[in-house]
Design a protein around this nucleic acid. Sequence first.
DNA 1: TAGCGTGTTGAGCAGCCGCTCAATACGAAA
DNA 2: TTTCGTATTGAGCGGCTGCTCAACACGCTA
Lengths: 207, 207
Amino acid sequence: MSPQTTRPRVRLSAEERGLAIVDAACAIAREHGLSAITLRAIAGRLDVASGLITHYEPSMDGLIARVFRQIVSAELLELQEEVARFRSASERMRALIVTLLGGGRESVTVVWIEAYALGRRNVALRKAVQAESRAWSRFVVELIQAGVAEGVFHVADPAATAWQLIGMIDGLNAQALVRESDALAYVAQMARASETLLGATSGSLAG
Amino acid sequence: MSPQTTRPRVRLSAEERGLAIVDAACAIAREHGLSAITLRAIAGRLDVASGLITHYEPSMDGLIARVFRQIVSAELLELQEEVARFRSASERMRALIVTLLGGGRESVTVVWIEAYALGRRNVALRKAVQAESRAWSRFVVELIQAGVAEGVFHVADPAATAWQLIGMIDGLNAQALVRESDALAYVAQMARASETLLGATSGSLAG
DNA sequence: TAGCGTGTTGAGCAGCCGCTCAATACGAAA
DNA sequence: TTTCGTATTGAGCGGCTGCTCAACACGCTA
C-alpha cells in the first residue's frame, strides 16, 4: 500500500484549483443540468471540502453563469468547425440543421432550458444567456448572408430569419426532451421549412 | 373589535378546500412560476397550516402537474375562443400568431419552460406536458386542415407543420423572457414565415 | 346538552441549500 | 531545520424543502 491509503491529498495552485472547480461544475451540468450544480456536489466530485469551493467561487450564481457560457460557447465552436467542413452555404446550412436536430444534444438543450428558467432570478446568468444568444444569432446571420452572396438564399432580413431558424430548432429540441420521439424525425421537415424561410430552391437543403 | 381579532377561521368542506388549494397554487404559478409552488407558500396564501395542504395533496409533484394542466388548458381554451371570433382560416391563423406573440403571455411561457425543466424529474408533470402538447398540436392541425379545405393553405403534412409553428412560437417567446425586446416585434416576421410554411399567398396572414 | 365526526393545527424530522470562519497542514523559502 | 504563506479543512449557522402525526376545535346529530 502507498504511504497514505486514506487520502492521496493533492495540493493545487490557485489557478489549477480554480480551473478544476469550473471543470467539475461543467461536468455536473452536462450530466444533470445547471440546477444540479451545488457546493457539495462539486466538492464531492473533486473529493474536497465544500468550503474550498466557496473560497474560489464566492457566488454560486456567478459560477452557474460561467458554466453556462463555457458549455454553450464550446458547443457553438464545435458546431462552427463541423459546418466549416463544407463549402457552399446550402451544404453548411444543412449541416447545421442535421447536427442540431440529429440527437445526442439533449444535455445542452437541458442547459439552455434551465438557463431560461433560472435566468429570471440569476442576473449574471441572464446576461450570459443574452450574450450567448447574440453569438448564436451572429453565426447564423453570417451563414445566411453567405448564402445570399452566393445567390442561393433570398431573404430581406437575415437577422429576423436567423431568429426564426433558431427558435424552431430550440422549440423542437425542447419538445424532444419530453416526448418519446427524438427531433431526428424533424430533420427533413425542418430542411423543407428552412428552404422556404431562406428563399432557397426546393430540395437544396435536403439529403 | 370583533369577537376574534386574531383569526376569522373558516371551515370549508373537503371539496371546497381542495379547490381553494389548487386555485392558490395556480395563482402562485402564474405569479412566480411552477418552482414557487411549495407547501408553505400555498398555506401562507390561504392563511392555513401547512399540514392541511399535505392532507389534501399528498404529493407535491402531483399538485404541480395538476396546476400545469389547469393553467395551460385554460390558456388553450381562451385562445380557441379568441380565434373562433374569426371566420376564415387565414384570419384565424393570424389571430393565433398575434395573440401568442403579442406580449402579456410571459407568465404562461414561464410555466411551459419550467415544466420542460422540472418534467425531467417529475413523472406526473412529464405526462402532463405530453398530454397538453398533444392538445395544442391537435388544435393547430385542425386550423391548418381547415385552411387546406378552404384552399388557402397548401401543406403536405399538417402535423409536421403544426409542430414547426408551435416550435417557432415557443422559441421566440422563450427568448423574449430573457431579452429586453418582446416578441411583439416578430409578429410581422412570423406571419411571413407562416405564409411560406403554410403555402399561403404572400400577405394573406399580414396586418 | 352531550357526543362524535372531521376539518384543521403546528411543532417537529430529515434532508437539502449557500455560506462562514477559525483551525490546520502542507510546501517552498530562509 | 525552522519559518511563513497559503491551500485546505469541516463543523456549524440559518433558511428552505416535503412530509408526519398526535392533538385540537368546530358543527352537526342524537
